[in-house]
Design a binder for these strands. Sequence first.
DNA 1: GGAATTAGCACCAAGTTAGTGCGCTTTAGA
DNA 2: TCTAAAGCGCACTAACTTGGTGCTAATTCC
Lengths: 160, 160
Amino acid sequence: MIQLTKRTEYGLIALVHMADRERDYVSVREISERYLIPRRLLAEVLKDLCHARLVDSQRGATGGYTLALSPDRLALSEVVAALEGRPSLTSCESLAPAQHGECGLEPLCPIRSPLHRLREGLWQLMQRTTLRSLLKPRSPLTGDPDAEPAVSPAVLTVLS
Amino acid sequence: MIQLTKRTEYGLIALVHMADRERDYVSVREISERYLIPRRLLAEVLKDLCHARLVDSQRGATGGYTLALSPDRLALSEVVAALEGRPSLTSCESLAPAQHGECGLEPLCPIRSPLHRLREGLWQLMQRTTLRSLLKPRSPLTGDPDAEPAVSPAVLTVLS
DNA sequence: GGAATTAGCACCAAGTTAGTGCGCTTTAGA
DNA sequence: TCTAAAGCGCACTAACTTGGTGCTAATTCC
Protein backbone atom coordinates (compact mmCIF):
# COMPACT_ATOMS: atom_id res chain seq x y z
CA MET A 1 0.00 0.00 0.00
CA ILE A 2 1.14 3.49 -0.74
CA GLN A 3 0.10 5.34 2.38
CA LEU A 4 1.71 6.97 5.33
CA THR A 5 0.98 5.37 8.68
CA LYS A 6 -1.03 7.07 11.40
CA ARG A 7 2.17 7.38 13.36
CA THR A 8 3.72 9.46 10.61
CA GLU A 9 0.61 11.57 10.27
CA TYR A 10 0.54 12.26 13.97
CA GLY A 11 4.23 13.01 13.96
CA LEU A 12 3.87 15.53 11.18
CA ILE A 13 0.97 17.25 12.87
CA ALA A 14 2.98 17.48 16.06
CA LEU A 15 6.01 18.85 14.24
CA VAL A 16 3.94 21.50 12.51
CA HIS A 17 2.46 22.49 15.84
CA MET A 18 5.86 22.70 17.44
CA ALA A 19 7.09 24.87 14.61
CA ASP A 20 4.30 27.31 15.37
CA ARG A 21 5.31 27.46 18.99
CA GLU A 22 8.85 28.39 18.05
CA ARG A 23 11.31 27.30 20.72
CA ASP A 24 8.84 26.49 23.49
CA TYR A 25 8.69 23.07 24.99
CA VAL A 26 5.22 21.78 24.20
CA SER A 27 3.72 18.78 25.94
CA VAL A 28 2.21 15.67 24.44
CA ARG A 29 -1.01 16.46 26.26
CA GLU A 30 -1.38 19.82 24.59
CA ILE A 31 -0.99 18.40 21.10
CA SER A 32 -3.13 15.35 21.70
CA GLU A 33 -6.01 17.42 23.05
CA ARG A 34 -5.78 20.03 20.34
CA TYR A 35 -5.86 17.57 17.46
CA LEU A 36 -7.74 14.73 19.14
CA ILE A 37 -4.85 12.32 18.84
CA PRO A 38 -4.57 9.38 21.30
CA ARG A 39 -2.15 10.67 23.89
CA ARG A 40 -0.18 7.53 24.60
CA LEU A 41 0.30 6.82 20.93
CA LEU A 42 1.48 10.32 20.24
CA ALA A 43 3.90 9.94 23.13
CA GLU A 44 5.41 6.89 21.45
CA VAL A 45 5.76 8.76 18.21
CA LEU A 46 7.47 11.75 19.76
CA LYS A 47 9.78 9.48 21.67
CA ASP A 48 10.87 7.95 18.37
CA LEU A 49 11.36 11.36 16.82
CA CYS A 50 13.46 12.24 19.83
CA HIS A 51 15.62 9.16 19.34
CA ALA A 52 16.07 10.19 15.73
CA ARG A 53 17.27 13.58 16.96
CA LEU A 54 14.53 15.45 15.15
CA VAL A 55 13.14 16.88 18.40
CA ASP A 56 14.60 17.62 21.81
CA SER A 57 12.88 16.60 25.00
CA GLN A 58 12.69 18.12 28.43
CA ARG A 59 11.45 15.98 31.29
CA GLY A 60 9.66 17.13 34.38
CA ALA A 61 6.68 19.26 35.25
CA THR A 62 6.96 21.93 32.59
CA GLY A 63 8.71 19.67 30.10
CA GLY A 64 7.79 18.65 26.62
CA TYR A 65 9.25 18.55 23.16
CA THR A 66 10.70 21.16 20.84
CA LEU A 67 12.16 21.08 17.36
CA ALA A 68 15.81 20.15 17.23
CA LEU A 69 16.23 21.56 13.73
CA SER A 70 15.00 24.57 11.87
CA PRO A 71 11.89 23.81 9.79
CA ASP A 72 14.02 24.54 6.74
CA ARG A 73 16.35 21.69 7.57
CA LEU A 74 13.81 19.11 8.56
CA ALA A 75 12.87 16.96 5.58
CA LEU A 76 9.79 14.80 5.32
CA SER A 77 12.05 11.92 4.42
CA GLU A 78 13.66 12.07 7.84
CA VAL A 79 10.32 11.89 9.57
CA VAL A 80 9.24 8.93 7.49
CA ALA A 81 12.56 7.19 8.01
CA ALA A 82 12.32 7.69 11.75
CA LEU A 83 8.75 6.48 12.07
CA GLU A 84 8.38 3.76 9.49
CA GLY A 85 11.79 3.14 7.99
CA ARG A 86 13.04 3.98 4.56
CA PRO A 87 10.55 2.74 2.00
CA SER A 88 11.53 -0.18 -0.22
CA LEU A 89 8.66 -0.31 -2.76
CA THR A 90 9.28 -3.95 -3.63
CA SER A 91 9.47 -6.73 -1.11
CA CYS A 92 12.70 -8.27 -2.33
CA GLU A 93 14.62 -5.09 -1.64
CA SER A 94 13.69 -5.18 2.01
CA LEU A 95 14.63 -8.83 2.34
CA ALA A 96 17.77 -9.12 0.23
CA PRO A 97 20.03 -6.17 1.01
CA ALA A 98 21.87 -6.11 -2.28
CA GLN A 99 23.68 -9.41 -2.21
CA HIS A 100 23.81 -10.61 -5.75
CA GLY A 101 21.77 -7.58 -6.47
CA GLU A 102 18.98 -10.00 -7.25
CA CYS A 103 15.88 -11.19 -5.48
CA GLY A 104 14.77 -14.76 -4.94
CA LEU A 105 13.29 -14.98 -8.41
CA GLU A 106 16.68 -15.57 -9.78
CA PRO A 107 18.16 -13.76 -12.71
CA LEU A 108 14.91 -12.42 -14.01
CA CYS A 109 12.88 -10.23 -11.76
CA PRO A 110 12.19 -7.97 -14.71
CA ILE A 111 10.76 -5.06 -12.79
CA ARG A 112 13.39 -4.51 -10.18
CA SER A 113 15.65 -1.84 -11.57
CA PRO A 114 13.06 0.55 -13.03
CA LEU A 115 11.04 0.32 -9.87
CA HIS A 116 14.17 1.08 -7.94
CA ARG A 117 14.47 4.28 -9.88
CA LEU A 118 10.88 5.12 -9.12
CA ARG A 119 11.52 4.64 -5.44
CA GLU A 120 14.47 6.95 -5.63
CA GLY A 121 12.23 9.53 -7.21
CA LEU A 122 9.72 9.26 -4.41
CA TRP A 123 12.48 9.50 -1.88
CA GLN A 124 13.81 12.65 -3.49
CA LEU A 125 10.33 14.08 -3.35
CA MET A 126 10.32 13.50 0.37
CA GLN A 127 13.80 14.80 0.88
CA ARG A 128 12.87 18.03 -0.81
CA THR A 129 9.68 18.50 1.15
CA THR A 130 10.67 20.44 4.23
CA LEU A 131 8.69 21.01 7.36
CA ARG A 132 8.71 24.66 6.38
CA SER A 133 6.79 23.92 3.22
CA LEU A 134 4.24 21.99 5.25
CA LEU A 135 3.31 24.99 7.33
CA LYS A 136 3.64 27.67 4.72
CA PRO A 137 0.11 29.06 4.47
CA ARG A 138 -0.31 29.59 8.19
CA SER A 139 3.15 30.22 9.53
CA PRO A 140 3.93 33.66 10.93
CA LEU A 141 7.53 32.97 10.02
CA THR A 142 7.01 33.06 6.30
CA GLY A 143 6.88 36.47 4.74
CA ASP A 144 5.79 35.34 1.31
CA PRO A 145 3.67 32.21 1.43
CA ASP A 146 4.18 31.39 -2.22
CA ALA A 147 7.86 32.11 -2.42
CA GLU A 148 8.91 28.51 -1.96
CA PRO A 149 7.14 25.63 -3.64
CA ALA A 150 6.57 22.50 -1.62
CA VAL A 151 8.59 20.48 -4.07
CA SER A 152 11.37 21.87 -6.15
CA PRO A 153 11.01 20.80 -9.77
CA ALA A 154 14.69 20.96 -10.56
CA VAL A 155 15.69 18.09 -8.35
CA LEU A 156 13.41 15.63 -9.95
CA THR A 157 15.49 15.54 -13.05
CA VAL A 158 17.71 13.00 -11.35
CA LEU A 159 15.10 10.49 -12.25
CA SER A 160 15.98 10.36 -15.88
CA MET B 1 3.84 2.07 4.77
CA ILE B 2 5.20 3.10 1.41
CA GLN B 3 5.44 -0.13 -0.47
CA LEU B 4 3.76 -1.85 -3.37
CA THR B 5 1.85 -5.00 -2.52
CA LYS B 6 2.84 -8.44 -3.72
CA ARG B 7 -0.24 -8.37 -5.89
CA THR B 8 1.08 -5.34 -7.73
CA GLU B 9 4.54 -6.86 -8.02
CA TYR B 10 3.11 -10.04 -9.48
CA GLY B 11 0.89 -8.08 -11.79
CA LEU B 12 3.80 -6.07 -13.14
CA ILE B 13 5.91 -9.14 -13.70
CA ALA B 14 3.05 -10.74 -15.57
CA LEU B 15 2.50 -7.66 -17.69
CA VAL B 16 6.16 -7.48 -18.60
CA HIS B 17 6.08 -11.12 -19.57
CA MET B 18 2.99 -10.62 -21.69
CA ALA B 19 4.63 -7.70 -23.42
CA ASP B 20 7.48 -10.00 -24.41
CA ARG B 21 5.06 -12.50 -25.87
CA GLU B 22 3.50 -9.84 -28.05
CA ARG B 23 -0.10 -10.66 -28.86
CA ASP B 24 -0.15 -14.29 -27.72
CA TYR B 25 -2.53 -15.44 -25.06
CA VAL B 26 -0.35 -16.59 -22.22
CA SER B 27 -1.68 -18.72 -19.37
CA VAL B 28 -1.46 -18.12 -15.66
CA ARG B 29 0.33 -21.43 -15.31
CA GLU B 30 3.13 -20.40 -17.63
CA ILE B 31 3.84 -17.19 -15.76
CA SER B 32 3.51 -18.68 -12.30
CA GLU B 33 5.93 -21.48 -13.10
CA ARG B 34 8.42 -19.23 -14.81
CA TYR B 35 8.65 -16.71 -11.97
CA LEU B 36 7.71 -18.99 -9.08
CA ILE B 37 4.58 -17.05 -8.23
CA PRO B 38 1.69 -18.81 -6.43
CA ARG B 39 -0.65 -19.72 -9.23
CA ARG B 40 -3.98 -19.07 -7.60
CA LEU B 41 -2.88 -15.70 -6.35
CA LEU B 42 -1.60 -14.68 -9.76
CA ALA B 43 -4.91 -15.77 -11.19
CA GLU B 44 -6.72 -13.38 -8.87
CA VAL B 45 -4.41 -10.58 -9.87
CA LEU B 46 -4.87 -11.12 -13.58
CA LYS B 47 -8.59 -11.36 -13.12
CA ASP B 48 -8.53 -7.92 -11.53
CA LEU B 49 -6.38 -6.53 -14.31
CA CYS B 50 -8.91 -7.97 -16.75
CA HIS B 51 -11.76 -6.20 -14.96
CA ALA B 52 -9.79 -3.01 -15.20
CA ARG B 53 -9.49 -3.58 -18.93
CA LEU B 54 -5.72 -3.65 -18.88
CA VAL B 55 -5.61 -7.20 -20.24
CA ASP B 56 -7.94 -9.29 -22.33
CA SER B 57 -8.78 -12.86 -21.44
CA GLN B 58 -9.58 -15.94 -23.45
CA ARG B 59 -11.18 -18.87 -21.70
CA GLY B 60 -10.84 -22.51 -22.56
CA ALA B 61 -8.09 -24.95 -23.27
CA THR B 62 -5.67 -22.71 -25.12
CA GLY B 63 -6.81 -19.56 -23.39
CA GLY B 64 -4.94 -17.07 -21.28
CA TYR B 65 -4.33 -13.36 -21.04
CA THR B 66 -2.87 -10.81 -23.37
CA LEU B 67 -2.23 -7.10 -23.14
CA ALA B 68 -5.23 -4.95 -23.97
CA LEU B 69 -3.08 -1.87 -24.53
CA SER B 70 0.24 -1.12 -26.10
CA PRO B 71 3.06 -1.01 -23.54
CA ASP B 72 3.43 2.64 -24.39
CA ARG B 73 -0.09 3.38 -23.23
CA LEU B 74 -0.11 1.29 -20.09
CA ALA B 75 0.91 3.40 -17.11
CA LEU B 76 2.10 2.08 -13.78
CA SER B 77 -0.55 4.21 -12.15
CA GLU B 78 -3.27 2.20 -13.83
CA VAL B 79 -1.84 -1.05 -12.56
CA VAL B 80 -1.60 0.27 -9.04
CA ALA B 81 -5.10 1.71 -9.19
CA ALA B 82 -6.48 -1.59 -10.40
CA LEU B 83 -4.73 -3.73 -7.82
CA GLU B 84 -4.62 -1.61 -4.69
CA GLY B 85 -6.65 1.49 -5.39
CA ARG B 86 -5.45 4.99 -5.92
CA PRO B 87 -3.10 5.89 -3.09
CA SER B 88 -4.32 8.37 -0.53
CA LEU B 89 -1.20 9.00 1.57
CA THR B 90 -3.19 10.25 4.54
CA SER B 91 -5.98 8.32 6.19
CA CYS B 92 -8.54 11.12 6.21
CA GLU B 93 -8.49 11.38 2.45
CA SER B 94 -9.56 7.80 2.08
CA LEU B 95 -12.35 8.20 4.61
CA ALA B 96 -13.74 11.64 3.82
CA PRO B 97 -14.01 12.01 0.05
CA ALA B 98 -13.74 15.77 -0.08
CA GLN B 99 -16.86 16.89 1.72
CA HIS B 100 -15.97 20.06 3.50
CA GLY B 101 -12.53 19.40 2.17
CA GLU B 102 -11.58 18.68 5.75
CA CYS B 103 -10.93 15.59 7.78
CA GLY B 104 -12.38 14.70 11.16
CA LEU B 105 -9.86 16.88 12.94
CA GLU B 106 -11.91 19.84 12.05
CA PRO B 107 -10.58 23.02 10.62
CA LEU B 108 -6.98 22.37 11.46
CA CYS B 109 -5.42 19.32 10.03
CA PRO B 110 -2.36 21.37 9.20
CA ILE B 111 -0.67 18.86 6.97
CA ARG B 112 -3.44 17.96 4.60
CA SER B 113 -2.95 20.23 1.66
CA PRO B 114 0.82 20.01 1.26
CA LEU B 115 0.69 16.26 1.59
CA HIS B 116 -1.98 16.25 -1.03
CA ARG B 117 0.44 17.93 -3.37
CA LEU B 118 3.06 15.35 -2.56
CA ARG B 119 0.64 12.61 -3.39
CA GLU B 120 -0.10 14.23 -6.70
CA GLY B 121 3.60 14.25 -7.40
CA LEU B 122 3.88 10.57 -6.69
CA TRP B 123 0.88 9.89 -8.82
CA GLN B 124 2.39 11.79 -11.72
CA LEU B 125 5.51 9.73 -11.32
CA MET B 126 3.45 6.61 -11.74
CA GLN B 127 1.42 7.98 -14.60
CA ARG B 128 4.58 8.72 -16.50
CA THR B 129 6.11 5.33 -15.90
CA THR B 130 4.91 3.17 -18.75
CA LEU B 131 5.09 -0.56 -19.09
CA ARG B 132 7.43 0.08 -21.97
CA SER B 133 9.94 1.74 -19.68
CA LEU B 134 9.76 -1.26 -17.36
CA LEU B 135 10.95 -3.64 -20.02
CA LYS B 136 13.35 -1.37 -21.79
CA PRO B 137 16.68 -3.18 -21.31
CA ARG B 138 15.40 -6.54 -22.52
CA SER B 139 12.64 -5.77 -24.95
CA PRO B 140 13.19 -6.70 -28.58
CA LEU B 141 10.78 -3.94 -29.46
CA THR B 142 13.04 -1.13 -28.38
CA GLY B 143 15.71 -0.14 -30.79
CA ASP B 144 17.55 2.21 -28.49
CA PRO B 145 17.33 1.13 -24.86
CA ASP B 146 18.30 4.52 -23.49
CA ALA B 147 16.22 6.66 -25.76
CA GLU B 148 13.36 7.03 -23.32
CA PRO B 149 13.94 7.63 -19.63
CA ALA B 150 11.74 5.79 -17.19
CA VAL B 151 10.36 9.04 -15.90
CA SER B 152 10.23 12.20 -17.88
CA PRO B 153 11.63 15.09 -15.88
CA ALA B 154 9.61 17.75 -17.60
CA VAL B 155 6.28 16.60 -16.32
CA LEU B 156 7.25 16.82 -12.73
CA THR B 157 7.29 20.56 -12.84
CA VAL B 158 3.57 20.50 -12.25
CA LEU B 159 4.42 19.88 -8.64
CA SER B 160 5.49 23.39 -7.95
C1' DG C 1 -16.00 -36.43 -23.48
C1' DG C 2 -11.81 -34.92 -21.37
C1' DA C 3 -8.36 -31.80 -20.35
C1' DA C 4 -6.93 -27.22 -19.75
C1' DT C 5 -8.20 -22.82 -19.00
C1' DT C 6 -10.46 -18.50 -16.85
C1' DA C 7 -14.33 -16.82 -13.29
C1' DG C 8 -16.04 -16.14 -8.83
C1' DC C 9 -16.35 -16.44 -4.10
C1' DA C 10 -15.38 -17.56 0.41
C1' DC C 11 -12.11 -18.56 3.60
C1' DC C 12 -7.77 -18.95 6.54
C1' DA C 13 -3.18 -17.58 8.35
C1' DA C 14 0.36 -14.47 9.06
C1' DG C 15 1.95 -10.03 9.60
C1' DT C 16 1.41 -5.08 10.50
C1' DT C 17 -0.59 -1.27 12.64
C1' DA C 18 -3.27 1.32 16.07
C1' DG C 19 -3.81 1.86 20.53
C1' DT C 20 -3.41 0.82 25.74
C1' DG C 21 -1.50 -0.54 30.59
C1' DC C 22 1.59 0.07 33.94
C1' DG C 23 5.30 1.47 36.44
C1' DC C 24 9.43 4.18 36.41
C1' DT C 25 12.32 8.59 36.39
C1' DT C 26 12.72 13.53 36.17
C1' DT C 27 11.58 18.27 37.26
C1' DA C 28 9.09 22.72 38.69
C1' DG C 29 6.81 24.78 42.06
C1' DA C 30 3.94 25.21 46.24
C1' DT D 1 9.99 18.02 50.98
C1' DC D 2 6.00 16.76 48.84
C1' DT D 3 3.25 16.55 44.80
C1' DA D 4 1.68 16.97 40.31
C1' DA D 5 2.93 16.90 35.67
C1' DA D 6 5.73 15.52 32.38
C1' DG D 7 8.70 12.14 29.61
C1' DC D 8 10.69 6.97 29.33
C1' DG D 9 10.31 2.18 28.39
C1' DC D 10 8.37 -2.05 27.59
C1' DA D 11 4.98 -5.30 26.91
C1' DC D 12 0.67 -6.36 25.44
C1' DT D 13 -4.03 -6.53 22.99
C1' DA D 14 -7.25 -5.76 19.17
C1' DA D 15 -8.29 -4.63 14.64
C1' DC D 16 -7.05 -4.52 10.06
C1' DT D 17 -4.48 -5.79 5.82
C1' DT D 18 -2.22 -8.85 3.10
C1' DG D 19 -0.70 -13.25 1.16
C1' DG D 20 -2.31 -17.32 -0.06
C1' DT D 21 -5.68 -21.40 -0.66
C1' DG D 22 -10.08 -24.39 -1.65
C1' DC D 23 -13.69 -25.32 -4.22
C1' DT D 24 -16.92 -25.12 -7.78
C1' DA D 25 -18.57 -23.43 -11.94
C1' DA D 26 -18.29 -21.99 -17.02
C1' DT D 27 -15.78 -22.05 -21.35
C1' DT D 28 -13.16 -23.85 -25.20
C1' DC D 29 -9.94 -26.78 -27.89
C1' DC D 30 -8.77 -31.44 -29.31
